[in-house]
Design a protein around this nucleic acid. Sequence first.
DNA 1: CACGTTGTAGCACGGTCGTGCCACAACGAA
DNA 2: TTCGTTGTGGCACGACCGTGCTACAACGTG
Lengths: 192, 192
Amino acid sequence: MPPRLDVDARRAQLARAVWHVVLTQGVGAVSVRTVAHEAGVAVGSLRHVFPTRAELLEFSAELIVQRAAERVRAVPQDGDPLAHALAVLEELLPLDATRRAEMEVNLALVAEAPALPRLAAIRDEAAAGIALLCRQAVERLGGRDDESTVRRLHALLDGLALHLLSQEPGEDVTWARALLRAELERIASHHG
Amino acid sequence: MPPRLDVDARRAQLARAVWHVVLTQGVGAVSVRTVAHEAGVAVGSLRHVFPTRAELLEFSAELIVQRAAERVRAVPQDGDPLAHALAVLEELLPLDATRRAEMEVNLALVAEAPALPRLAAIRDEAAAGIALLCRQAVERLGGRDDESTVRRLHALLDGLALHLLSQEPGEDVTWARALLRAELERIASHHG
DNA sequence: CACGTTGTAGCACGGTCGTGCCACAACGAA
DNA sequence: TTCGTTGTGGCACGACCGTGCTACAACGTG
């Protein structure tokens, strides 16, 4: 007895509409009306799956984190630890339109955190996940598993992400990949 | 013939009110009414110095950048290039309540950039200024003035700033200073 | 004194906001 | 068929929004 409406699909559709509004009109333009209109449904239908605006925003943020986590999980685990680590961490860099949009939306939603405390919690969970990935990368590369090594990698990763975000969508991104690769090679060469 | 009202002081007072609202209620709560109330003036008075809401927000963002630039300019230029570079770049890290608030507000305002394009321009100017400081630091430390060295330092700096922001206000910050110092020492030891 | 300038205070308009609430269609189960 | 469930669409309320506009007080200048 499947429900006549696929609630999860509808939720994802509305979350995508949120992302689109954020990207084109800014997070200030996100309202139940604009999002419903963007998704092509009535406000009442939106409110059937998201009774309040907060739930809509929180789900949208959670879905972004979840998508990124899935992409990381889907990275093939071949023999070369450096190539694998690079591939994993590059999934967290806005190197194409999709990842760029995700990061931009995430940043905008996080900026609303004082009003929606749940968003701060989502941000913290995501940060913890990325920190874990950095730690695993350091371990598999055989680097010193200093706390400082992990933290430097993590900070460098997020700093690169931030700078990629503020350059125009079409611009060159190879410099960022090269910098990340250099850091991973540097970690691998410092055995401890 | 000084004007009876110090317009610049009034503007700064209102900008501070903007910051306070952003920090306590989120950027979504910034309106001419809330800001005027926070500053203890009538809406009409606010609009006497900031005819539109956009001008209020833009000035608030500009003032933050300007303050940071002044702090950097005020760093004493002693003999040790490493200590000087460290002191300069630490001014751009949210290591105390003041710098923390500045950065938090800046992030929130930047998230509004799609709606207020002027804010994106302010963000880009600030980024260019920080990039210049990073370049100067690399030069004075005698490091390779690779583009990649400068970009790496800049990314690490902003990544550290981001991570400091998401930890609680009272927590330990020495790890970030240590990481920044290590990076500068590394640059100084790679002559080219 | 009168007069223009400067600054304060606030009313009112048209609009958008989130949300409570209801009417109604579509459907499966009885 | 009749019923309850599920989903759609939308009206309406009170609140808040930015801003155009006016009334008025306070002041320097003539």
